Amino acid sequence: MKQRPVLTDYLKKHWLLVGIFVCIFLASIYPSLGSKEGPLKPEYTCKYGAVSTIFFISGLTLKADSIYYTLRQHRLHLFIQTFTFIFIPIFTQILVVLLNTFRIDKWILKGLITVACMPPPVSSAVILTKASQGNETAAIFNSVLGSFLGIVITPLLLLLNLGYTTVVPLFGIMFQLSSTVLLPLCLGQCVRRYTEFRGHNLPLNTISQCALLFVIYTTFCDTFSMPEGGLTASDILVTMFLVLLIQMLLLTISFVCAKSFKFFSPGDVVCTMFCSTHKSLTLGIPILRIMFHGLSHLSEITLPLLVYHPTQMILGGLLVASMKEWIYSHKGKRPPV
């Protein structure tokens, strides 16, 4: 009888993490349901439904003064973008040089370098920051800024690091970002400013996290639906280990470095940790398919990005509760269960 309240409290506290693993399990059973062009049509319901919902709720809940304050946090933005586009590619190049001594497939190592050049996503880092009670406004700003910068910077980084480059579909990406992020965000701000609706009677945070779970579910459906393309079990296991190692190192480095700056609040540190280490699958897969179209090693190059995207969500889910407690410990309060 004593174990039931403990289990209930744990499930309430870590329900997002539990939901992530449930999504992975369901996706593994019937991946075609939520894969691209499947019955759930995630190319529309996820991109224009779940993601737009996340940013509409963010726009509805963001206060104008927090937006103005965030725009003036130049050092925070500079740190995140520098870590994303400069530190991670250099760090990965050095790591790849060390890994070459272990005779790992060179195309998988090229895939790791490709991942390092990618911009941040626009949904997962925002929701994980919000769920951890971090600086949500800064997370939104830097995710959007990083995605736009990636249109120009990512091809240049690929050229410098791999000798390959590609023409990024500028109009298509700008339309996607505008329609799924900026428009819902502005719409939420307009509703907040010109109406009395604030969603007080609605569990907005829970709705946002459920939308993220749908994004995670469809991501894993795509992952499980991908053909192996000649990959061996050892290739997949080595890639999973390397991606997990890289992400844990980057999360630790980002957290420790950001925490060392006294002008960053705990909420800024959490925002920095998620925003500076996450990489976009949405922009990454089209770039890889354009760059390496017809190449027999496309599956090996793509594998690290396919593993990186869901791994960052799992690790993020594991960190949410501890990051929330860490932020509240600095406020002298206990986080709500």
Rank of each mutant, 00 (worst) to 15 (best):
K12G: 02
H14G: 03
W15C: 04
L17E: 06
F21Y: 07
C23Q: 01
A27R: 00
S35H: 06
P42R: 01
E43T: 06
V51L: 14
T53F: 00
I54F: 00
S58D: 00
L62N: 03
K63D: 13
Y68G: 04
Y68P: 04
T70W: 01
R72G: 05
F79M: 10
Q81C: 05
I86K: 04
P89G: 08
I90V: 15
I94T: 13
V96N: 02
T101A: 15
R103H: 12
K110Y: 09
K110C: 09
I113N: 07
T114D: 12
T114M: 14
P119D: 12
P119I: 12
P121A: 15
I127Y: 01
A131Y: 10
A131Q: 12
S132D: 11
Q133W: 02
Q133H: 12
N142C: 10
L145V: 12
L149S: 14
G150D: 08
P155K: 01
P155T: 05
G163L: 06
Y164L: 02
Y164W: 07
L170G: 03
F171H: 07
F171S: 14
M174F: 15
S179T: 10
S179Q: 09
L185R: 00
V191C: 08
R193A: 06
T195F: 03
R198F: 06
L204K: 03
L204V: 03
T206C: 08
T206D: 13
A211L: 05
T218H: 01
T219Y: 03
T219S: 13
D222L: 14
D222H: 02
F224D: 11
G229L: 06
L231M: 04
A233L: 08
I236S: 02
L237M: 15
T239Q: 01
L245F: 06
L245V: 12
Q247W: 00
L250G: 09
L251N: 12
F255D: 15
F255Y: 13
A258S: 14
K259E: 12
D268N: 14
T272V: 15
T272D: 12
H278C: 14
P286L: 09
I287P: 09
H293Y: 14
S296C: 10
H297P: 01
L298A: 11
T302Q: 12
L303T: 04
L305Y: 04
L306Q: 10
P310D: 08
G317N: 07
A321K: 04
M323N: 09
E325H: 11
E325M: 09
E325R: 13
W326V: 07
I327P: 00
K331A: 12
